[in-house]
């Protein structure tokens, strides 16, 4: 029962909006404004075809590769930088600088250096999406509790075990905040990198539709991107709830 209620809350407003959209566009003749029924039809037509293999799958695999690498590398470097004070002080201004560069400007540069291929797109994603994870991890590692740290020392929990049982878990709330930001950045960069220079992918397809005035198809691409974003966010929320159960419980009690 509670589950059904949750689902009802989740889909309630979207359904209402779609109904409103349907009512407002019911006798519209504007070519640029899509109608819900028509869009759904186009959506199935366009994406449940060979385009699924040519455009959708490559996009998803670039996105996931870039995202996973950003998270893993971000956590790894974040822990190293966060644990060594000298490294932290040295790298702070440099990291701020790199973070301040808008990643899309790297597309032309990386095109020249790496060439027009998948690696370039993955690199663009990593270059944009790694910062939130990395900087939040540094912050989380730096903020570990002193008493817990002493506890580890007394019980001689050091080296890898210390990271596994203490540092990583202790920094996990901050890491998850970083991951949440990285997901949206990665999605944006996936599309942008494909718009610039590509012969496949969602970004490429959408630009192509737009250039050929295939407006309904273009809308269907935007819809697909939105749905991908929502799915990623749902997967994230599910994971976060499990990883941070202790954290939310603790906060609940502290209040």
């Amino acid at each position: 029962m509670r589950f059904l209620k949750q689902i009802a809350y989740f889909v309630g407003l979207p359904i209402a909006l779609i109904l409103l959209w349907w009512v407002l566009t019911i006798d519209s003749t504007n070519f640029f404004v899509p109608k819900p029924g028509q869009l759904a039809e186009t959506f199935v037509e366009v994406w449940f075809s060979e385009r699924f293999f040519v455009d959708v799958l490559p996009s998803i695999s670039r996105l996931l590769t870039g995202l996973v690498l950003s998270i893993v590398l971000g956590i790894l470097f974040g822990i190293i930088i966060g644990s060594v004070r000298i490294l932290r002080q040295l790298s702070e201004p440099v990291l701020e600088f790199f973070r301040a560069i808008p990643p899309p400007v790297l597309v032309p540069l990386l095109m020249l250096i790496i060439g027009i291929n998948d690696q370039m797109k993955v690199m663009v994603i990593i270059f944009g999406a790694i910062w939130p994870v990395l900087l939040n991890t540094v912050e989380g590692v730096r903020a570990v509790d002193e008493v817990l740290s002493d506890t580890c020392r007394v019980y001689r929990i050091s080296g890898f075990a210390r990271f596994r049982y203490f540092v990583l878990r202790s920094a996990s709330p901050q890491i998850m905040t970083g991951v949440r930001q990285s997901i949206s950045i990665a999605l944006i960069l996936m599309v942008i990198s494909e718009m610039f220079a590509s012969s496949s992918g969602l970004g490429f397809a959408i630009v192509q539709f737009q250039r050929t005035f295939a407006v309904p198809q273009m809308w269907s691409g935007i819809l697909l991107l939105g749905l991908m974003g929502v799915s990623l966010s749902l997967i994230f929320q599910f994971t976060e709830k499990r990883v941070l159960r202790w954290y939310y419980g603790l906060r609940e009690v502290d209040r």
């Binding site: 817990l148 954290y247 603790l250």
Partner: peptide, 18 residues
């Protein structure tokens, strides 16, 4: 190795995720 400590701040000396 043969020494253990019970800290003053007991609440903070336990791992909240375990």
């Amino acid at each position: 190795k043969s020494l253990a400590v019970v800290f003053q701040e007991y609440g903070r000396s336990l791992f909240p995720w375990m």
